[in-house]
Simulated scan of single mutants.
Amino acid sequence: MKANELRKREGFYGQKLIVLPKKVINDFLIKDAITKQIHITDIGYYPKAGFHYAERNAGIGQHIIIYCIEGFGWVEINKKRIEIGPSEFIVIPKNVPHKYGASENKPWTIYWIHFKGELSSYIVELILKNTENFQPNLSYNEQRIRLFDDIYHTLEMGYGSDALRYVSMTFSHFLSSLIYQKKFSSPDQQPQKNVIELTIGLMQRKIQTDVTLKELADFASLSVSHFSSVFKAKTGYSPIEYYNHLKIQHACQYLSFTDMSVKSVSVTLGIQDPYYFSRMFTRLMGVSPAGYRKKAK
C-alpha cells in the first residue's frame, strides 16, 4: 500500500482530542466578555503520528498552532513548504489554504490548538511579527506543557462558565509563552480541589454508567436542592446537564477514533435509548452523530 493511501487525520495510539460543542461556542464563548476575546474551539495531542495528513484548500475559520516536541513533519502554506522539527511550532492563520503531514521515517509528536476570537488575528500577527515563514523556533519548556495539560484537563471536566473563562485566560498565558519566551515563567501550583470539582471527578469515573442527582448530592454531602443550586452557580449548568456534556465529549472521541456504531456508543455511555442519545448529541454539537463522524473522517 502506498504512503498516500495510509494518510489519516486522526487515529494515533495515545492521542487526545476535544472538539467544543457548537452550542457552547454560540451560547457562551462568542458572547462572554472574556471568552469572546480569545477562545479554543479544538485541542489535541498526537504522539508519533505516523501518516498524519490534512489538506484544506480554502483554510478553516480558526487559527491553528502546531507545536512539535519530537520527530518531524512539514506544513505547506500558500504553496510554500516548511519543514518542522523538535522544539518548533507553526502558526497557520485562519482562512489560509494549507496542508500538513508527518515525516514517513520519524513522524512528529505534536500538541495542537484551533482558536479564534476578537483578539486572535492580532495575537497571530504578534507571533509572526519577527518571522517570515510562519515558523518561530521554540525552546522546550515543561511549564508550557503543563499549561496545555491544564487547559485540556479543564475542558475534559466540562464546559462550565468558570471553566471556560479559566481556559481562555490560561490559553492567553500559553500564547504569551510563545510570543515572549524569555519572560515566560510560571510557579508550580496545585490548588486543592473543591467539592464541585470532586463531584465532576465522580461523573468522569461513572461516564459509562448512569448516575442520579441524589447520588451526586450524597457524594457532596449536600441536600439535592442545595447541591443543585451550588453546582449551577459554580458551573452555569445543572448537574445532569453537565454530566451529559461530559458524555457527549466522550461520544465525540468514540465517533472519531473507533468504528463503534452510534447505538454501541450510546450504550457504552450508559444511555440505553440511542434515539435519545442522537437527539442530545445533535442539540449540543449542532450535527447528528453520523454527520459528526463523517466530518471527522
Rank of each mutant, 00 (worst) to 15 (best):
2 K>W: 10
3 A>V: 14
7 R>A: 04
7 R>G: 01
8 K>P: 01
9 R>F: 03
11 G>P: 03
15 Q>I: 04
19 V>R: 07
22 K>S: 09
23 K>D: 03
23 K>H: 05
26 N>W: 08
32 D>M: 06
37 Q>D: 12
38 I>Q: 02
41 T>M: 02
47 P>F: 01
51 F>K: 01
52 H>D: 06
52 H>W: 15
56 R>K: 13
58 A>H: 09
58 A>S: 08
62 Q>K: 14
68 C>G: 06
69 I>W: 08
70 E>V: 08
70 E>H: 11
73 G>A: 10
77 I>R: 07
78 N>V: 10
78 N>P: 00
78 N>Q: 11
78 N>A: 11
83 E>A: 12
87 S>F: 15
96 V>E: 11
98 H>M: 14
105 N>K: 15
120 S>Q: 08
125 E>L: 06
127 I>N: 07
129 K>L: 08
129 K>M: 09
135 Q>D: 05
136 P>K: 15
140 Y>Q: 10
145 I>K: 10
150 D>L: 13
151 I>A: 03
154 T>N: 02
158 G>V: 11
161 S>P: 00
162 D>I: 12
165 R>S: 12
166 Y>R: 15
170 T>K: 12
170 T>V: 12
171 F>S: 09
179 I>D: 12
185 S>M: 10
186 S>W: 15
186 S>I: 15
189 Q>S: 13
189 Q>F: 13
190 Q>K: 13
200 I>P: 00
204 Q>S: 10
206 K>Y: 11
208 Q>W: 11
215 E>W: 10
215 E>M: 12
217 A>R: 12
217 A>K: 11
222 L>S: 11
224 V>L: 14
224 V>H: 11
233 A>V: 07
234 K>W: 13
234 K>T: 10
240 I>P: 01
241 E>A: 14
242 Y>P: 00
242 Y>Q: 10
244 N>C: 09
244 N>W: 10
247 K>M: 07
248 I>V: 13
251 A>L: 07
256 S>N: 03
258 T>W: 02
260 M>K: 10
262 V>Y: 02
263 K>A: 09
266 S>R: 09
266 S>F: 04
269 L>S: 05
270 G>A: 02
271 I>K: 03
272 Q>I: 02
280 M>P: 00
281 F>P: 02
288 S>V: 03
288 S>F: 02
289 P>Y: 00
295 K>Q: 05
